[in-house]
Amino acid sequence: MKAGRFWAWVVFALGAAYFFIPLIATVEFSMRMRRGVYSFDAYKVVLGDERFQATFGYSVLAAVFTIILGVLIVVPAAYWIRLRLPQLRPIVEFITLLPLVIPAIVIVFGYIRMYGSNSPLPFLASDTGTNALLVIGYATLALPYMYRAVDTGLRTIDVRTLTEAAQILGAGWGTIITRVILPNVLIAVLSGAFLTFAIVIGEFTMASLLNRPAFGPYLQNIGANRAYEPAALAIIAFAITWGCMSLIQILSRFAPRSANRPN
């Protein structure tokens, strides 16, 4: 084996150890609930807990609405910027990065001040309004991922020519976006959607400060009061995230291939 290859494997092994050892330790700890034997008791407790089901269900629903809102905002915006306003791209990219720079706590306090029960837009005056505000907040948090995923997808197709080809065949903007652009960036949109899902499922700050019964605050609550269950929950949350990532990989195989190749 050449020296370069040997060191490459050493680095890989170190990286893998750094990643897997804590994970294995957590799995091992989560299975030690029953004294002296390994068992899935902690998982049974967690999965059988009504609050787990309720909060997880709530967060899944919030994630679905967040994805829908994100797609409705990001796809037309990214498409229009690529087609007609390419000079605005650096500005929009900067704006979409802001949620990574501004802490969620700042955003949520801003929301509380802006949309409190005494404001002209009293989102926080009702449960439905607060839920809607949470979804809007989540869409903001997911914006860097969703925008980049969609923009990368748009980069793989000739947006302008495909748009013109559809236009000259009689298509209006609705048809162009739904039948030409969206199907060709669907895998990118799904990538963004799964990243959004992963973010929303574990999000704590916004849900907690808006007092919503979401999975993130539940995770925190269990973590503060139990020993083995938090480890089991961490593994479950990790499995969900990895499941999402795997789905992105699987779906990317079905992406429409570019037609623009030389003869």
Binding site: T161, L162, E164, I168, L169, G170, A171, V180, N184, S258
Partner: peptide, 20 residues
């Protein structure tokens, strides 16, 4: 008139077939 109101056919250099 807008392109979709002209009843004109066009063939592009880059083919522009819809990949999906």
């Amino acid at each position: 008139l807008k392109p979709n109101q002209r009843n004109v056919g066009m063939v592009f250099q880059a083919y522009a077939l819809f990949p999906n």
